[in-house]
Design a protein around this nucleic acid. Structure first.
Lengths: 115, 115
DNA sequence: TTAATCCTTATAGTTAACTCTAGGTCAAGT
DNA sequence: ACTTGACCTAGAGTTAACTATAAGGATTAA
């Protein structure tokens, strides 16, 4: 199975190795294995998971909340509903942002505000 | 014309007077008038403008960038295109976030990732 | 006239999310 | 064997955006 180093993953996800180590320290990556000498080794599935984390971050979710989500994942099927609800909640947040933005666009398009 | 005090506006917009003064210091509210004694007096249109600022913040726009936008507004019609472009850009950002979120929702709905 | 609410400046504290440095380990190439 | 480069940790430093306090003063509603 192909694995990746921290700097390869950082490049792929467009962030730094510092940031990945910080995420690890914050409990966002309990799934990442190590070599006998202690180096992190990332699998394809780890990278997929990190992409989900990035998506959650994009929606404005704080790291502590993402950490909770990761912890739920470790708890298995019993937390499936919670996890699903959380995603639905996130979606609602972004949809609400979209609505606000649309309203604002309408305002500026109709030139109804100036200083 | 009806006007509002800083604390009334803070309550209406669901933030604190501290925050409003901070925004003022950062150049986000050059339009707000004062009484002869120096108190800020907000009009309905000021509040409308502050709501636009809140909307921009919701999309993740930093205060410095919002300040630039406000400065453009002061520059009048010559910056109309820039301002419109900025809003389109913001909209695109949020739409992209939506797309990411939809993808992620699909992933979790199909239960294709677990730790 | 007293209490509340506002103002200022200056300064300090807080939180989140990085971002970096120092000092050390380890594995591969020459 | 040795040097180079990528990795490690702990912990310090940074930035943004508040959030609050203090000290001192003005205004306004009851």
């Amino acid at each position: 199975m192909k694995t990746y180093s921290i700097s390869e993953v950082a490049k792929e996800l467009n962030l730094t190795a510092y940031t990945l180590r910080y995420y690890d320290k914050e409990g966002l990556m309990p799934f990442v294995e190590r070599t006998p000498s202690g180096k992190r080794i990332f699998t394809e599935s780890d990278i997929g998971f990190l992409k989900v984390i990035q998506c959650l971050k994009l929606t404005g979710m704080p790291i502590k909340d993402i950490k909770n989500f990761i912890a739920w994942c470790s708890d298995g099927d019993s937390t499936l509903q919670q996890r699903y609800d959380m995603f639905v909640d996130r979606k609602a947040t972004v949809v609400a942002q979209m609505e606000e933005l649309k309203k604002t666009l309408e305002v500026i398009e109709h030139k109804t505000f100036y200083i």
